[in-house]
Structure formats: C-alpha cells, structure tokens
C-alpha cells in the first residue's frame, strides 16, 4: 500500500513540475557542490590533494559496486536486503577455495558462482511466489547467507588472499595516479548506465517498475526480467566479494555488514524511488560521489564516522522531502 500511494504522489509531481528528473539531478548537483565547498573550507590545504582524494574515494568503492544492481532492483519496484549476506558468503567461499586449492583464479570463480547462485535463489523464490514481498524474502535470505558463512567460519577468519600480488593490486594497484578499482568502477557505471537508459531491456525495466500489470499486458516478460536482475545482483555480489577480499585479505562472518542499506541510501538519494519506475543512474552516481566525498572530507577534519552517519541520514530525509515542500509552496502561491 505504501508503495502504491508513493507512486501516485510521484505521478502528480511528474505532471505538475514537468521534468522532475532534471530538477532532481540539479538539486543533487547543488548538494554535491555544497559538500565540496564545505569540505574545502574545512581543510583547504588537504582537501584537493589528488592522492588523498583518490585514496578517500577508494574506501567507498567496494561497497559502491552494489549500487549498480541495487539501482536496477529498485527501478523494478523490488528491494534486495540480502546483498550484504551474499557478499559475505561469496567472500568466505573465495577465501576457503583459495586456501584449499592455492589458486586465486579458482577462488574468484567459486565466489562469483556462489554470488550468482544466491542471486538466482532470490530471483526464483520471488518469481515462483509472486505474492511474497521482496523485503521479506531477501531479509530471510540475508540471514541465511550470512548464517551459512557464520556456520562455516565460526568465530575464525579465512585469510591469506593478499599473498597474491596481482590480486591485492585489484584494490591497491594503480595505473598512473588512478586506482584500478576506480577505473573498473567507472567502466561498470558506463555499462550499467547504457543498459538502463539506452537498451530495450532498460526501457522494459522502467515499464515493469511503473506498472507491473500494464507491462505484462504489453507483452513484457515481467518475471523473466525480475529473475535476470536478481541473478545479476548476485553476480555483482560475487564481484564485490572479490574486491572485498583484495581490500581486507581476510573474511569474517560480519563482512560487508550494512552494504544493503548503504546502497539503498545512495540510490534513493540519487532519485531512484523505492516505489519503482523512476530514477536515473547518473543521479545515483552523483549521490554516490557526494556521500563518498562527504565521508572523506569530514574524515579529514576528524569527525567521527557516527556523526557522518547522522549527517547522511539527515541529508537523505531532507532531500527526499524537497518535492513535497515544493508542492506545498506551489499550492500556497495558488491560494494567494
């Protein structure tokens, strides 16, 4: 019901304000600029230091990989709370297979396979039992995936992945001044952006998110698309697990905790409504870099992570309320 009423609101807004998407991104861009200015004025000599900046960005890139598939899932009007557990399980498998076989390639393959299978399980559950809310199913599979990892690892960690130099350089290595992981991230952003906005598949995703029934009657394989997107999310969890291992070199059962909510937060801030059918990937990217720079900039002046979370949370709530406030002001003017 909540999603339904959310969608009606989105509709009214779209008609009254015109091209909301453009406006949303311009608001976001203003926030992005504001964050940069605040950060710069807080630490003028350190903030625009290229190597600092890039290292600060790199911190958030691993969990940022989840933003792409999450954008797709939210666009469909679904939600996936299991990505954290999935990354954790995939990373666990990577560590175990590597330690057992001594081959990092085999480990990566196993991790990506695990992630994909977990995503497929989510997709199958949701498309076979269409009555079920995605939130419930993925909440349960999140507990399940992380639980399996916890069952395997107990309170120990699987380690040693950073012994392989090239694997470690996935996170730490750089080409010139720029980290490999940033390049990969940007390439992925372009690919996912093109799929979302320039392909038939992307248009179909928008259609499904806007109105599932109408999309079905228009001949779109709604359940097929949902299955593909959830499996893709699982695949990306496997990829994220690889970078996670490259970054930390060891995996415990609390790995990747909270990735799901971070990714959802970025997407929503970027204008991708959880009600589905609305939003752009560039918007999500602006939001991602805004939050990443905010974390980096405030970290420079030794503001604690918890306070940064308060700011991010407040930013999320306030930004999401902007359209409502705009509507109110407009109504007020009309009355006058």
């Amino acid at each position: 019901m909540a999603t339904k009423s959310g969608r009606t609101i989105a509709h009214i807004k779209q008609r009254s304000v015109g091209s909301v998407l453009l406006r949303w991104e311009s608001i976001l861009f203003l926030i992005f600029l504001a964050v940069n200015i605040v950060n710069y004025s807080l630490s003028p000599d350190k903030y625009f230091n290229t190597s600092n900046l890039l290292r600060g960005l790199r911190e958030t890139l691993v969990s940022g990989m989840i933003v792409f598939p999450m954008a797709f899932i939210l666009l469909l009007g679904d939600i996936d709370l299991s990505v954290g557990g999935n990354v954790c399980l995939s990373a666990t498998v990577l560590g175990l297979v590597y330690n057992a076989s001594g081959s990092i390639w085999l480990g990566i393959l196993a991790a990506v396979a695990t992630g994909t299978v977990c995503g497929l399980i989510n997709g199958l559950l949701l498309t076979r039992f269409t009555e079920l809310a995605p939130m419930v199913v993925t909440l349960a599979t999140n507990i399940l995936y992380r639980g399996i990892s916890e069952g395997i690892l107990g309170d120990t960690a699987t380690k040693g992945m950073q012994k392989v130099d090239w694997f470690k350089s996935l996170y730490f290595g750089k080409l010139g001044d720029i980290y490999y992981i940033l390049i990969i991230f940007l390439v992925l952003a372009v690919i996912f952006g093109l799929v979302m906005h320039k392909t038939v598949f992307g248009r179909q995703m928008f259609a499904v998110g806007e109105n599932k029934r109408a999309a079905k009657y228009a001949g779109i394989g709604v359940e097929k698309i949902r299955l593909i997107v959830f499996t893709l999310a699982g695949f990306m969890c496997g990829i994220t697990a690889m970078f996670y291992c490259a970054k930390t070199g060891s995996v415990m059962s609390n790995a990747a905790e909270g990735y799901e909510l971070d990714a959802i937060c970025v997407c929503v801030l970027g204008g991708i409504s959880t009600a589905g059918g609305k939003g752009t990937l560039p918007g999500a990217m602006i939001a991602f870099f805004t939050i990443a720079l905010l974390k980096y900039g405030l970290g420079l002046v030794n503001i604690k992570g918890q306070i940064i979370n308060v700011i991010i949370g407040a930013l999320l709530v306030v930004v999401v309320m902007i359209p409502t406030v705009q509507d109110l002001i407009k109504k007020h003017r009309i009355k006058k």
Binding site: A140, T141, N142, I143, L144, Y145, R146, G147, I148, E150, G151, L153, G154, D155, S253
Partner: peptide, 8 residues
C-alpha cells in the same frame, strides 16, 4: 554458529 542460517 549455524543458528542464524537455520533461522533464515
């Protein structure tokens, strides 16, 4: 350690 998995 397997409790969470079973709960899921």
């Amino acid at each position: 350690f397997w409790q969470q998995a079973l709960k899921g």
